[in-house]
């Protein structure tokens, strides 16, 4: 092993062990320290942290193929109609926008707020997309990310 390689490994080892030992000690996080700076940098982009449960649910939420069957079962468009008073609602919009970015969820607020949670959309969905869970997810995330 040449000298350069040895120094490289030593450097990595120092930080590897230092990091893990440090984690055993009580948190020494300083306000305004590294993590806060990191989060601050991304605040303008409205990027948010996901919990492990949320992350585990992502693949299911992305299974929409945009077939549109949910649109015809959504109770919010059922007669006697209220077309003139209401903005369009389309459960598919919820599912499709999910595959867009969380920072843009706030644009769906008008839709998810009106969802009554009846679940008829999920009953007909061929790809088992968890639409109700997505509505709740979008509702949560968009509260944090809405522009002032």
């Amino acid at each position: 092993m040449n000298r350069k390689r040895f120094l490289t490994y030593a450097f990595l080892a120092k930080y590897y062990f230092g990091h893990h030992l440090g984690r055993l000690l009580p948190s020494r996080r300083k306000p305004g320290g590294g993590l806060d700076k990191f989060l601050e940098n991304y605040r303008a982009d409205r990027i948010q942290a996901l919990t492990p449960e949320e992350r585990a649910a992502l693949p299911d939420m992305q299974s929409c193929v945009s077939c549109g069957l949910c649109t015809s079962s959504c109770v919010l468009t059922a007669p006697p109609g209220n077309l003139t008073e209401t903005p369009p609602i389309d459960p598919r919009a919820v599912a499709v926008s999910y595959s867009r970015a969380i920072p843009e969820f706030w644009s769906l607020r008008g839709v998810v707020e009106r969802c009554k949670g009846c679940g008829l959309c999920e009953e007909v969905c061929p790809t088992d997309t968890p639409l109700l869970r997505m509505v709740r997810f979008i509702d949560d995330k968009s509260r944090e990310s809405a522009p002032a």
């Binding site: 549109g68 649109t71 015809s72 468009t77 077309l83 003139t84 209401t86 903005p87 369009p88 389309d90």
Partner: peptide
């Protein structure tokens, strides 16, 4: 609906 269009299903 005057604005925002309508889906065929609606």
């Amino acid at each position: 609906r005057k604005q925002g269009g309508m889906t065929p299903a609606e």
